[in-house]
């Protein structure tokens, strides 16, 4: 994987006594989609503002595209597209006029600006409403206009703060597709979200934030391996003699734990996908196999499990 696009070293931001971001070491590589995930108030937005030079770090270093946002904010902001959460526009102006203002602030020559605006509007499917005032736009349309604005800069890095918050499921899915397309164009994407299940599918790697610290970092399967110990949960629905079925499942190579969850529902925690093996031993043990499946670990599980452990650790 290519060079680092975002690099922070012991980045810290304090508001008085409150430590919003605590010694953060974040690395985002060229071309990946990185998810900064965590509950509200865990330091995600503060981190983003420091990456853009909109807030000064209390201590530590930041490099964005090899530049220091505190010293070279103009170069950074000319190359990085940012869409804040609850993105707002000048409601009385049309979508096109809103975008024209942004191209002027970026110092783009007029002909170039108009061409980029048409491209961005077309790409976001907003050409037909381009001359309507933004106050008539739905939330989903505003978000798409936000992406259109970000595209005007032809950015190398795009930072999206809570991009799917407040969108209906259809709108959220559509938006995730937009992010996938950005990735296909070779743009590095850093997004923040507290809706873990929504962004799980599109992030190459994620960092889980908790109280200003990045407590976990890696791809979703890596984290599952780390936190949930066995990554695979195989469930079976079997009618038959309980003891023999349990014993048979326990004998499987790779099975760590077997639980009976319900009247005839079993769960096998394993380090690999044991569906086929489990099915065959259950049948041999005289059981009637009614259902079978494997649960892929979700970020929500990982997150919940991680904090269970943290709280247990704290309690002890």
């Amino acid at each position: 994987m290519g060079e680092l696009v975002v690099e922070t070293h012991d980045l810290t931001k304090k508001y008085g006594d409150l430590v919003a971001v605590d010694r953060l070491n974040l690395h985002v590589r060229q071309g990946e989609v990185f998810g900064v995930l965590g509950p509200n108030g865990s330091g995600k937005t503060t981190t983003i503002l420091m990456l853009l030079g909109l807030t000064e770090p209390t201590s530590g270093n930041v490099r964005v595209l090899g530049l220091d946002p505190a010293r070279q904010p103009l170069s950074v902001k000319a190359r990085v597209g940012y869409m804040p959460d609850e993105v707002g526009f000048y409601d009385e102006l049309s979508a096109r006029v809103n975008l024209i203002y942004i191209t002027k602030l970026n110092g783009l020559p007029r002909a170039e600006a108009y061409q980029r605006i048409e491209e961005a509007l077309a790409r976001m499917g907003l050409q037909d409403v381009a001359d309507q005032p933004v106050r008539t736009f739905s939330r989903g349309m505003r978000r798409r206009l936000g992406v259109a604005e970000v595209l005007l800069k032809r950015p190398q890095l795009v930072i999206l703060d809570e991009p799917t918050q407040g969108l209906d499921p259809e709108g959220a899915r559509e938006f995730l597709n937009i992010i996938r397309n950005l990735k296909q164009d070779g743009i590095t994407v850093l997004l923040s979200s507290h809706l873990l299940h929504q962004v799980q599918a599109i992030c190459d790697r994620v960092g889980l934030f908790h109280r200003g610290r990045m407590v976990l970092e890696g791809s979703v399967p890596e984290l599952a391996q780390k936190v949930l110990a066995g990554a695979y949960h195989v469930w079976l629905q079997v009618e038959g003699p309980e003891e023999r079925i349990r014993e048979a499942l326990r004998q499987l190579p790779g099975a760590r734990d077997v639980m009976r969850e319900d009247h005839n529902r079993y769960r096998v925690v394993a380090s690999e996908d044991l569906r086929a093996e489990a099915a065959s031993v259950v049948v041999q043990a005289g059981g009637r196999l009614l259902g079978l499946g494997v649960e892929t670990p979700s970020l929500d599980d990982i997150y919940a499990r991680y904090f269970e452990e943290v709280h247990h650790g704290a309690a002890v």
């Binding site: 503002l49 853009l52 909109l54 904010p73 103009l74 170069s75 902001k77 000319a78 990085v80 597209g81 940012y82 869409m83 804040p84 609850e86 993105v87 707002g88 526009f89 000048y90 409601d91 942004i102 602030l105 970026n106 110092g107 936000g146 604005e149």
Partner: peptide, 13 residues
């Protein structure tokens, strides 16, 4: 109007 952060994210001071 929540336009402040968007405008200041442009290359201006």
């Amino acid at each position: 109007r929540r336009t402040m952060s968007r405008v200041l994210a442009q290359p201006i001071y």
